[in-house]
Amino acid sequence: MTVLSVDGLSKTFDMHVLGDTQVVGLDDVSFDVREGEFLAVVGESGSGKSSLLKCLYRTYDPSSGEVVYHSPDGDIDLASCPDRTVIDLRGDSIGYTSQFLDEIPRVPAVDVVARPLIEQGVDREDARSVARDLLSALSVPESLWQAYPATFSGGERQRVNLAQALAPKPDLLLLDEPTSALDPDTRRAAIDLLSTYLGSETTVVGVFHNTDVVDAVADRVVVLDDGRLQRVVPTEAYDEEVVLG
């Protein structure tokens, strides 16, 4: 069953500050995402991976095309639905995390992770308990749980970020290089967590830099090049390409 149908998605930036130049981010990208699958988006730097994810999350306003989310309540075109529909979906079914943690300073790490759950109505202490489990699974030292993420190292912040995105178990999770700053061991812990914590109900679209992550978790791979879709292939096929390439 298809959960997301991307059809003819394009994104062009009008850069007024650069003398009204136009920058093409995505050009006519189409693919489907199946329910419960883990879809990896790969490509060179600047190929449009992050732009694709941001268009799916509506952090970027798609210039044309459709992103139809087949929700239990019916189809919603994420590219054109009202802002409020997007806000509602973000609240309970679509999660997103970027490479950069974007948090209010002076909130302890455990509360940063627990916040989405609390906002969904989970009891505060239950939410904190889930948060501690996630931080522990991602090998964030316990001494840091009550500390402010603003003081953390890049890798530690990224783990807090990932834990926060995973905590509410969204139906569709968009991950933008969530492991880029992690050492191999922690990356492996993160990968394990993605499969064990989320289970089969969550569909993941993730941008990954490291092929080992793609290998470990992805069912299929979307390959982007210069804003265009090259192909969508099963992970095994992609692996062969990489080896051959």
Partner: peptide
């Protein structure tokens, strides 16, 4: 959307 305004500002002034 606030993140859209911040990351994909359309209007010249917003940019």
């Amino acid at each position: 959307l606030t993140d859209r305004i911040m990351e994909d500002p359309h209007h010249e002034y917003t940019q």
